[in-house]
Amino acid sequence: MGVLGSAAQGAVAGLAATVAMSGAMAAARKEGKVGRTPPKLLIRRFLPGGREQSPRPGENLAAAAAHWGFGAGAGAVFGALTGGRPPRALLGLGYGLGVWLVSYEGWVPKVTAEPPAHRDAPGRAATMVTAHLVYGYALAAALRRMRR
């Protein structure tokens, strides 16, 4: 299988992993551990009007689409990087942690009003790390299943 085929598998696995991550986030949201999420803040910022604090019509759908697209895209990169081999769970966990680190210590604070992870509320930061570990584990598991 070539790089494009591996990336396509990764994108599909990324969607499956986003389902798992979304479940973890929904549970955390129900417990009050997560407030604003970057997909919603990004959508609020980039929709007409450009203010993160003001709700916009259609923002929930747009934020979900952004999250699913990011999950599929990150999965495609992982799929291509693993080169058609079934990835181990530890590699997926590391990748999920890497996605969190690059996002929450990198680009997310630069384009939203969110603080970097090291300055975020400890409970929220821990929840976001956990959700990304769920993503990485589920991503590796889904790709392993596809590639066997």
Rank of each mutant, 00 (worst) to 15 (best):
G123S: 11
Y95S: 09
A64W: 07
T18A: 11
G14Q: 01
E114Q: 14
G92Q: 02
A113L: 13
K30P: 03
E114M: 15
L139M: 14
P87M: 07
E114I: 10
P57N: 05
G92T: 06
G32R: 08
S22V: 04
L47G: 05
P48N: 03
T37V: 11
T112W: 06
R51G: 05
A13I: 08
A8C: 04
S54F: 11
G98C: 12
L61Q: 06
Y135P: 04
P39S: 08
F78I: 06
A8E: 01
A17P: 04
M1G: 15
V111T: 02
F70S: 04
A64G: 06
R144Y: 03
G2L: 10
A28N: 09
L47I: 07
G32A: 08
A131M: 09
A8I: 12
F78R: 01
A20W: 01
S54T: 15
A7L: 12
A24Q: 13
T130C: 07
G94M: 08
K40H: 06
W100I: 03
T37N: 10
L139D: 01
T130Y: 13
R51Q: 12
V77E: 02
A126T: 07
R144K: 15
L90F: 08
W68C: 07
M21D: 00
L101W: 14
W100T: 00
V111I: 15
R147I: 10
H67L: 11
A17R: 06
T127I: 10
Y104D: 03
A121R: 15
R45S: 04
T112V: 13
T82V: 13
A142H: 01
G23Q: 04
L139S: 06
L4G: 10
